[in-house]
Design a protein around this nucleic acid. Structure first.
Ligand SMILES: [Zn+2]
Ligand SMILES: [Zn+2]
Ligand SMILES: [Zn+2]
Ligand SMILES: [Zn+2]
Lengths: 163, 163
DNA sequence: CTTGACCTGTTATGATATTACATACATAGA
DNA sequence: TCTATGTATGTAATATCATAACAGGTCAAG
């Protein structure tokens, strides 16, 4: 057990079925705790996001939902995604206008996102240090930070290795 | 002379006419140096962005251009904006899907953006320290960062003071 | 001049996101 | 149990952001 939130498995080999199942279990717990409902659409959207460590656009999610008999209009997807983001079960990736399942559900964390430009895998890195540094710069200007977006584009370990 | 790139004037009282005029002068120099043309549309778009320390959407810019007799189709605005960003004369703000004139034209800088949620003013802060911290986190995962986006939402000094 | 590179303009379309309203469902109080 | 209430879902319509593809204009080198 690591002493601090561990890096998250996105770039490492791991039992992903287990990884996804775990996330769902935690999501159930979190929502129950918060007194909100992880309804079928919401749960299914989370499952879809959990299939891969990538980011999916709202319309990609919507297409999947529609194919499975859920509604087929944009708000169906956007609402479920908004719910997931609001409760810390998913994150929005600004650079991609897309969404990814949180890999640290239930753990307090300040995520920075590492987006592989080759394979599109998205991992969460710890943003606390970067954030602290930014606070410094901002404080010097008298600016009070409330929310930060930290995203990096680059190459993941696997894609660096590949020719 | 400050030892490192100074914070930029967005949140401070300053002679903005002078600020904008300076930026244009530098833009002329930069483009001449690079052997590219700061054509009338491009120059005008930069002037429009320089009017305020805020971010403007491409269609806002387009409306202004159209009203002044330039083309009135999206590519006219997007192309000019793309040119400005490419040559470091403007920046794209991901969170806002919008563009802002660079306040450090001609200076090498790694900008983080501070966006006031109350008055929409955008300032550039030095992102180098935050970026360095992020490199650390990323390196630990074997990820090679190529480009970073660092944006913060919050309250500027003026809006903090106001009731 | 002519050529070629680049810039501008326009049409058309694609991609992302929200507003507004109607219907269905869960559940707590009467 | 019944019904009132809040919440969730479904749908239509529309707003907002962005790009592809092509036609015509400008300008300087040869
Ligand atoms: Zn996994
Ligand atoms: Zn990769
Ligand atoms: Zn700048
Ligand atoms: Zn403000």
């Amino acid at each position: 057990m690591s002493a601090h939130p561990h890096p998250g498995p996105a770039f490492a080999q791991h039992n992903h079925a287990h990884c996804a199942h775990d996330a769902l279990t935690r999501a159930e717990a979190i929502t129950k705790e918060a007194g909100v409902r992880l309804t079928p659409v919401r749960r299914r959207v989370l499952e879809i996001l959990l299939e891969e460590h990538k980011a999916l656009g709202a319309y990609d999610v919507l297409a999947r939902l529609a194919a499975e008999g859920f509604g087929n209009q944009p708000p169906v997807a956007y609402r479920a995604l908004e719910f997931l983001v609001e409760h810390g079960l998913a994150h929005r990736i600004q650079r991609l206008n897309a969404f990814t399942a949180c890999t640290h559900i239930g753990q307090a964390h300040a995520p920075a996102f590492l987006i592989c430009r080759s394979c599109a895998t998205v991992a969460e890195a710890e943003a606390a240090p970067a954030r602290a540094a930014l606070e410094q710069s901002a404080a010097a200007l008298g600016f009070a930070i409330e929310r930060t977006t930290i995203e990096a584009l680059g190459l993941c370990p696997a894609c660096r290795g590949a020719t």
